[in-house]
């Protein structure tokens, strides 16, 4: 699967197997409270599975100065 990281710094990752969102976030050392995981026009929760052929985006939700 392709994972586009829209957080700072922007980056792209590939995982070669089906994985749970919680596992992907753990691998990327991201806190589920600080990001949204998007597949197409739907939001994914930490319990959702992402297939090998899927493409997802991870977007930071934190802002402020």
């Amino acid at each position: 699967m392709k994972v586009k990281l829209e957080t700072s710094p922007k980056n792209e990752y590939r995982f070669e197997k089906k994985m749970k969102v919680s596992k992907i976030l753990k691998e990327l050392q991201l806190n589920p409270e600080s990001v949204m995981v998007i597949r197409g026009n739907e939001l994914l929760s930490t319990e959702d599975m992402v297939d090998r052929d899927d493409e997802i985006s991870i977007r930071s939700v934190i802002s402020g100065g």
């Binding site: 829209e6 700072s8 409270e33 600080s34 990001v35 949204m36 998007i38 939001l43 977007r59 930071s60 939700v61 934190i62 802002s63 100065g65």
Partner: peptide, 20 residues
């Protein structure tokens, strides 16, 4: 929470500035 506001924006197709 901030995540709930961001989720609402996404589900309601509200375009907002993503960069800090």
């Amino acid at each position: 929470t901030e995540k709930e506001a961001a989720s609402f924006a996404f589900l309601n197709e509200i375009d907002y500035i993503l960069e800090e």
